[in-house]
């Protein structure tokens, strides 16, 4: 946990020092996308070769949808309070 937070923070700090060098920013984002493409492909492979996971895709699907709908509902609900109390009055 501490290692991960340190690595992330070191990345943010490094990035901050690279401001003003847009080329670096662009290369880093390309590299980040490539890394994510590669890892998602590997995740796909490990799902495809894992019969238990493939058999459970239906269950995984409805769990996923349940979490996203609940997350959206919760977020919309709480943001409505913020809207009513802070933003709407402002508009009047």
């Amino acid at each position: 946990m501490i290692t991960i937070i340190i690595v992330l923070s070191a990345g943010v700090l490094t990035g901050f020092l690279l401001i003003g060098r847009p080329v670096w920013h662009r290369y880093n984002n390309k590299l980040l996308n490539l890394a994510i493409y590669g890892m998602l492909f590997l995740l796909g492979i490990s799902v495809g070769t894992n019969k238990e996971l493939i058999g459970n895709l239906g269950k995984i699907g409805y769990e996923s949808v349940a979490i996203s709908i609940a997350s959206i509902a919760g977020s919309v609900l709480f943001s409505t309070f913020v809207f009513r109390f802070l933003f709407k009055q402002n508009a009047k």
Binding site: V7, G11, G15, L18, I19, W24, L32, A35
Partner: peptide, 18 residues
Amino acid sequence: YALYLLMFLAGVSIGSDK
């Protein structure tokens, strides 16, 4: 190590976005 690399890159991406 793959995760650390990814985290570092994600961090740089966040930090360098002016």
